[in-house]
Amino acid sequence: MEVPILKQGDFLIASIQSALTDADLMALRDAVVTKVGHFRSSGVIIDVTVLDVMDSFATRTLRDIAHMIRLRGAETVIVGIQPDVAFSMVQLGLTLEDVATALDLEEGIAYLSRRTKEIRKGVASRGR
């Protein structure tokens, strides 16, 4: 099941549509990383609202994506983790510690806009 990745201005939005196998997750990782380079996007939103489980592999892959995207100079935010999913994740010990999270797509876009503005400001002030 391929995950559609849409370009929205400076950002990419990958919205997962159904349960993903490991192969699907790896395909998503490769596609997102490639497209960020292609579009020179400054941020990526991965919408996981429909996922009713995020196990260790899914969590690790999302973290890998975030790290790879950061290496390409962009930011990632995971949006839409469901309450029950979040609770089961932390019980298993999966906390996605260094990855940004937001409630939903709207919040994710707001987060990325703020983040990228901060980063630009930071770069600008350092340049002065």
Binding site: D52, D55, P83, D84, S88, L92
Partner: peptide, 26 residues
């Protein structure tokens, strides 16, 4: 998950069961 739900487990516990199965299968 379907079995847990059918047995009357709540959504929170059904998710936990589903998660455990995923890890064991993995």
């Amino acid at each position: 998950r379907a079995l847990a739900a059918q047995m009357g487990f709540g959504p929170s516990v059904s998710t936990v069961v589903s998660m455990a199965i995923s890890e064991l299968a993995r």
